[in-house]
Write a protein that binds this DNA or RNA. Structure first.
Length: 402
DNA sequence: TCTGGGGTCCTAGGACCC
DNA sequence: TCTGGGGTCCTAGGACCC
């Protein structure tokens, strides 16, 4: 989907069309800022630089999506809002409306599935589609079907998307970047040398800043240069698995299928505080946040029907270094109290002298919850037990750990 | 000037067992 | 006294993606 989060907001507020719009920041914080500026959200829009004491409101926010007009100013996703304000003071900032995003996400995916049923999820705004067995899927190299999908999505949602059609997922993903927004690119195997090899290695899905830097240090900048390397040379420098993979993808080879279903590996909740907190001085506040995160993870597990065998803790210090600790349980659980206890054990193994900016709780080693067996989690899953657990957590357990 | 939240996968070392 | 290969599980950190 093209500039998905921003495009969804433009549907609601068409008067913003063509203007630089950035989506990001905490919803509560941005709403508060809008109120403080005495702007009715639907009527008046506040440029990012007009926010009173902007830093207090959105200082820790990052941009999830920038409209194409905003991108002209060098503003892009993952950039801090403070930096965006400097680059483009007239940009209009709106909070992420996750409910609305999920609604449009489901809508566009359903629209695709009605046309081509074999669809793999790749997050809220992206999918892989297998054209192989779709009637007419091969006409004009897939362009006809791509056009139909584009048109149907636009009719259902009013949103545009960009489509890449290729012999495999690796190449399709790269092709989808060729003609944005609202474009279709068809890439054939024979186009590898002319259209893929001139691209930077960084364009490969899976080669990030670190690998790119390492490749650059070896004098390898383009995918063609990567393809020219001896496989053994890459294996020696990047390891057996990554080295071999790099050689494969440089030659446009990817045999991974489009898969509809996959089991989750972990579920987590984390939060960055509005200000850095200290384990001793802000004990009560941290304890309450910690408990809430554990309860959220427990609720997520229960809602989706999973139990976790390992519980993990993550924290990030004020200097942005982060540490993690894991604890494996004797019995898998989805109970808030058990998660809180295990995460509390993890917390004891971590240095707490430095101020914290983030706290997170993770449930891993998941298994489908079997309702037939009798275990601790099935008992704890009753509403009464849960609310009791919540009470216990906030009153007792919390205070002692920080 | 700083840097969200939710994920997956890989590596590497150590414990432990056969 | 010195010293095998597996294999699995657990833990910590980090790269990467949307």
């Amino acid at each position: 989907m093209d500039a998905f989060f921003a495009s969804v907001e433009l549907l609601r507020y068409p008067q913003l069309k063509g203007l630089p719009v950035v989506i990001g920041g905490a919803r509560r914080a941005v709403d508060e800022a809008l109120r403080a500026a005495q702007g009715e959200r639907a009527l008046r829009f506040i440029p990012v630089a007009d926010f009173p004491r902007l830093k207090d409101y959105v200082g820790r926010g990052v941009i999830t999506t920038a409209s194409y007009a905003a991108r002209q100013f060098g503003v892009g996703s993952a950039m801090g809002l403070m930096k965006a304000a400097r680059l483009c003071p007239q940009a209009i900032v709106l909070p992420v409306d996750f409910d609305e995003i999920r609604r449009f996400s489901r809508l566009f995916k359903r629209t695709i599935a009605e046309i081509a049923p074999l669809v793999q999820d790749r997050g809220v705004d992206e999918v892989y589609i297998d054209f192989t067995d779709v009637p007419g899927g091969q006409r004009e190299g897939g362009r006809v079907l791509a056009r139909l999908i584009q048109k149907s999505i636009f009719q259902a949602t009013g949103l545009t998307c960009s489509v890449g059609v290729a012999p495999n997922k690796l190449l399709a993903k790269m092709a989808s970047e060729f003609d944005k927004p609202n474009g279709i690119s068809v890439l054939h195997e024979a186009d590898l040398q002319s259209r893929i090899w001139p691209l930077a290695c960084r364009k490969i899905n899976g080669i990030g800043p670190k690998a790119d830097e390492k490749l650059a240090a070896l004098g390898i900048h383009t995918i063609g240069e990567l393809a020219a390397q001896d496989r053994q040379f890459l294996v020696a420098r990047f390891g057996k698995s990554t080295g071999a993979w790099m050689h494969e993808v440089a030659w446009g080879r990817d045999s991974s299928p489009v898969v509809m279903e996959s089991e989750p590996v972990s579920m987590s909740r984390e939060t960055t505080f509005e200000r850095d907190l200290h384990a001793v001085r802000d004990k009560a506040e941290l304890g309450a946040i910690f408990t809430r995160l554990c309860e959220q993870v427990a609720a997520d597990l229960q809602r989706k029907g999973y139990v976790a065998k390992t519980i993990g803790l993550k924290l990030r210090y004020d200097d942005f270094r982060s540490v993690t600790r894991d604890q494996t349980l004797a019995v898998a659980t989805d109970d808030g109290r058990a998660i809180r206890k295990a995460a509390g054990q993890c917390l004891k193994r971590v240095p707490l002298a430095q101020r914290l900016r983030l706290l997170g709780v993770r449930a891993g080693a998941l298994a489908k919850f079997e309702s037939t067996g009798v275990n601790a989690s099935s008992q704890a899953a009753t509403p009464t037990a849960l609310s009791q657990a919540a009470t216990d957590l906030t009153t007792n357990t919390t205070a002692s750990l920080f």
